[in-house]
C-alpha cells in the first residue's frame, strides 16, 4: 500500500517532466498526486467504498491541495493538477473492457467500459466542484477588494 503511494508520487513527477513543468513545481505536484492516490486506495481497499465514490473523494482532495499550492507558488492551478490527476485515470477497466469486447464477451466488456466511464465522470465531477468553488472564492475576494469581476 505504502509502496504504491510512493510509486504514485514517482509517476506524477514523471508526468510532470513529460509535460515540461518547471523544476521547482515538480515536488508539490508529486505530493498532490500521491495524496490523491492514497485517498483513493484507502477508501476503496480499506474502507470498502466503491471506486466511483473513492475517485470523487480523491479528486476533491488533490484538487483542493493543488489550489493551495497554486496560491502558495503563484502559478496556474493546472501546473499541479494536470500531472496529479493522471494516477486516478481508469486505465485498467478501460483496457479490460476493450479486451473483453475483442473476445466477444460483450456483456462483461460493456460492464467494464461503463465502470470506466463512470469513474471518469466522477473524477470530472470532483474537478468541476473544486474549480467552480475556487472561481467563487476568487470573485468574492475581488469583490471585497473593489475590483471588477469578469462576468
Amino acid at each position: 500500500m505504502l509502496l504504491s503511494v510512493l510509486f504514485a508520487f514517482l509517476a506524477t513527477m514523471a508526468f510532470g517532466v513529460l509535460f515540461n513543468t518547471p523544476k521547482k513545481d515538480l515536488l508539490p505536484g508529486g505530493v498532490a498526486g500521491a495524496l490523491g492516490w492514497a485517498v483513493f486506495i484507502y477508501m476503496r481497499d480499506i474502507w470498502g467504498y466503491n471506486s466511483q465514490v473513492s475517485n470523487f473523494a480523491a479528486t476533491v482532495a488533490l484538487a483542493l491541495l493543488c489550489e493551495v499550492f497554486a496560491r502558495m507558488f503563484k502559478e496556474p492551478v493546472t501546473l499541479f493538477s494536470i500531472p496529479a490527476i493522471i494516477p486516478l485515470v481508469p486505465g485498467l477497466p478501460m483496457y479490460q473492457g476493450m479486451k473483453l469486447l475483442m473476445m466477444h464477451a460483450y456483456n462483461v466488456g460493456m460492464d467494464k467500459l461503463v465502470q470506466a466511464a463512470l469513474d471518469a465522470a466522477f473524477i470530472s465531477l470532483g474537478i468541476l466542484l473544486v474549480s467552480s468553488l475556487a472561481r467563487l472564492f476568487k470573485n468574492s475576494q475581488q469583490k471585497i477588494k473593489g475590483l471588477k469581476v469578469r462576468v
Partner: peptide, 27 residues
C-alpha cells in the same frame, strides 16, 4: 501483460484534453 499494457498506455491517454475541457465547461 495487463499490468504492462495499462502502465504503458498512461502517457498517451488524453488527460490534459479532458481536464481542460471540463474546466472550460465550468468557465
Amino acid at each position: 501483460l495487463e499490468n504492462v499494457i495499462v502502465g504503458a498506455i498512461m502517457p498517451f491517454l488524453p488527460g490534459v484534453a479532458l481536464t481542460n475541457g471540463l474546466r472550460d465547461y465550468m468557465a
